[in-house]
């Protein structure tokens, strides 16, 4: 059952077996590896997934007990219920203006071509804001500790600066620096902070030129986003 030959007929059966969860682990892994690079195979798999999902059409919906959603939220967001929660709710309450999403490529080679955005769309952060007032993409090169920033829309207010903050776990926000005037820039993440990026939150605040004089955000939180580990 080796799939070295790109036999599309055989692939149809193979994709069906994969969608049904029938492949032995090694074959499933090999299929997934091909899936990642073969759009035709992805389409074949998608057909199966769509059709087989129809097998659930008449399964009666069953409302889960109300407590379950609270448990999910606690598991996802409840880690810093004490102080971390405070920072988060502070941010969540203050923002609503914009959202920044940060794609972080841990590992090497993601951004190894100097201060340019990653070439592969797989690593480009998809950025959006409710009102599109501030749109910032970021990608992290773990090898160099370099955070590539791409301010795609929005700018500091007249006579003000945008400052980037890292909020890891329950800790208070730590400044990663003021965003340079250029739309695209590299920020070096201090060595001590690098291990803390995974699962952390980034926020951008409105500050005086040169950044917050106090070490904590003093102006409005303009954007916030969770770091996604690619």
């Amino acid at each position: 059952m080796s799939d070295e030959t790109p036999d599309r007929e055989a692939d149809k059966a193979l994709a069906g077996e994969y969608a049904l969860g029938l492949l032995p682990p090694d074959e499933a892994a090999a299929f997934e590896a091909r899936l990642a690079t073969d759009p035709v195979l992805r389409a074949v798999y998608a057909d199966w997934a769509e059709d087989l999902a129809r097998l659930t059409d008449r399964i009666e919906p069953v409302a889960p007990p109300p407590r379950v959603f609270g448990q999910i939220e606690a598991r996802l967001f409840g880690k810093g219920r004490s102080t971390g929660r405070t920072w988060l709710s502070w941010i969540m309450g203050a923002m609503a203006a914009a959202v920044v999403v940060v794609a972080v490529g841990f590992g090497t080679g993601v951004l190894d071509r100097g201060p340019t955005p990653p070439g592969s769309p797989a690593y480009v952060a998809e950025i959006a804001a409710e009102d599109r007032s501030l749109v910032v993409a970021a990608a992290y090169d773990a090898g160099q500790g370099r955070l590539f920033i791409d301010r795609q829309r929005g700018a500091p207010r007249e006579g003000r600066a945008l400052e980037l903050w890292l909020i890891a776990g329950e800790d208070a926000p730590v400044s990663l620096g003021v965003l340079p005037a250029e739309a695209q820039a590299d920020l070096t993440v201090p060595t001590a902070l690098r291990p803390r990026l995974d699962g952390a939150v980034l926020a951008i605040s409105d500050e005086p030129p040169g950044g917050s004089p106090t070490g904590t955000a003093t102006g409005d939180i303009l954007a916030v986003g969770e770091i996604t580990n690619l």
Binding site: T56, I59, P61, V62, A63, V68, F69
Partner: peptide, 15 residues
């Protein structure tokens, strides 16, 4: 999303 889809998914999982 949870409100809209959890009963369906819970039904599938229970099944």
């Amino acid at each position: 999303l949870y409100s809209a889809t959890s009963a369906k998914l819970f039904g599938v999982i229970l099944r």
